[in-house]
Simulated scan of single mutants.
Amino acid sequence: MLAERLAAAGWLPADWAGSFAAVDRGAFVPARAWVDDEYGSPHPIDRDADPTRWRAAVYADVPIVTQLDDGATVWPATGGHATSSASQPRVVLEMLTALDVHPGHRVLEVGTGTGYNAALLAHRLGDDQVVTVEVDPTLAELARARLAAAGYKPMVICGDGAVGWPAGTPYHRVVSTAAVVAGHVPYPWVEQTRPGGLILTPWGTPFRNGGLLRLTVHDDGAATGRIVGDAAFMRLRQHRAAAPFGHAARLGDLLDASTTAEESTTTVRPLEVATGHAAFAIGVAIEGVQSGVFPDAEPGHVEVLLYDVRSESGAAARITPTADAAGRWPVRQHGPRRLWDEVETAYTWWALLGRPERTRYGVTVTPTRQQVWLDHPSNIVPTP
């Protein structure tokens, strides 16, 4: 049913149709999980208590959250942060298509999660051609059991995916279902991939987590490639420190309470700064700044919050109908960094470049450095 829906929408390529029809997503989603509402807040679903609602979610093109706070938050509690999920099927397909696998290819997957993606790969390539690594022991054991119950037996390793799995090398493809932070693509992935092979990973910055990076590995030990799409995934655990959880409300309150905050206005549209291609470019240009968009209860009123945990700095731009009509939005800034000024400078730099889309950016990874470039590997973009 899910495969038919994806095919009808034009999202299911022919070479993955058989695997999507054969592998039951429901066999990999736990009986108790969470589904995000329209505001991105998780709400519990229970297969035993409400099987209709559970099935409607599992066989829809939506992500299913399967773990909060590394398991510390126990269902049906909904506080905290999502740390594992069954990804949106359409995004799964986009990534598998970009991975460009063929019969005979050997694949390393980083981030087993539920095991669903590993099952799709195993169905397409064969069990012996797939190695999947999961850092969380509980998730690894559950995935191993679900895969076996569904008739698949790829090698499931409990370990740190950032170091790959050297015993299974060389791989034709490496795919990560966890995001990496700019400047920190794990070099073991490059070392363990054949020359000519591909590495596919969600890639982003603290400011904008969401680019899908595809690298080609070369004979000289370097890897280069472009951003080929959008994929906002949870970060590798060792990369979370670059954008730590749970500080937006605290730093927003600190900014609101400040009696020394600097007040000004801006003619740069706040939502453009925080979303899309501009946000991608801004994230490349500045260091350590996170952002959030927070609608108020009053229609048309939105706050765009910028914050830096390390320096305890914050800035907020207020969107209101009056500000929209005037084309000038009020800004408050607090702390040793003037975050809005930094972001506005980066925005102006991006606009002067001609507002390039994220797919014009690329990355080079070598044993000693990682560089971002625009249009060509020789055109290096300055980064912090």
Rank of each mutant, 00 (worst) to 15 (best):
M1V: 14
A3Y: 08
E4A: 11
P13K: 03
A14N: 04
S19I: 02
S19H: 03
D24G: 01
G26D: 00
F28T: 03
W34F: 02
W34R: 07
D37F: 07
A57T: 07
Y59A: 01
V62N: 07
T73N: 09
A82C: 09
A82S: 14
S87D: 10
M95A: 09
T97K: 14
R106H: 13
G115H: 01
R124S: 11
L125K: 00
P137G: 08
L142D: 11
R144F: 02
A149K: 06
K153E: 03
M155V: 05
I157L: 08
A167Q: 12
T169H: 09
Y171L: 06
A178N: 06
G183C: 11
H184T: 07
E191R: 14
E191L: 11
P195V: 10
P202M: 05
F207D: 10
F207C: 06
R208A: 15
A222H: 15
A222L: 09
V228H: 05
G229Y: 11
D230E: 14
L236N: 05
A241K: 06
A242M: 12
P244D: 07
A248D: 13
R250K: 13
D256C: 13
A257G: 06
S258L: 14
A281W: 10
G283E: 10
F294K: 03
H301C: 04
V304K: 02
S311L: 03
G314P: 13
A315E: 08
A317T: 12
P321R: 05
G327C: 07
H334M: 13
R338E: 12
L339W: 03
W340Q: 11
V343S: 06
W349Q: 12
W350G: 14
E357C: 07
Q370I: 02
Q371G: 01
W373N: 06
N379G: 11
V381Q: 13
P384W: 05
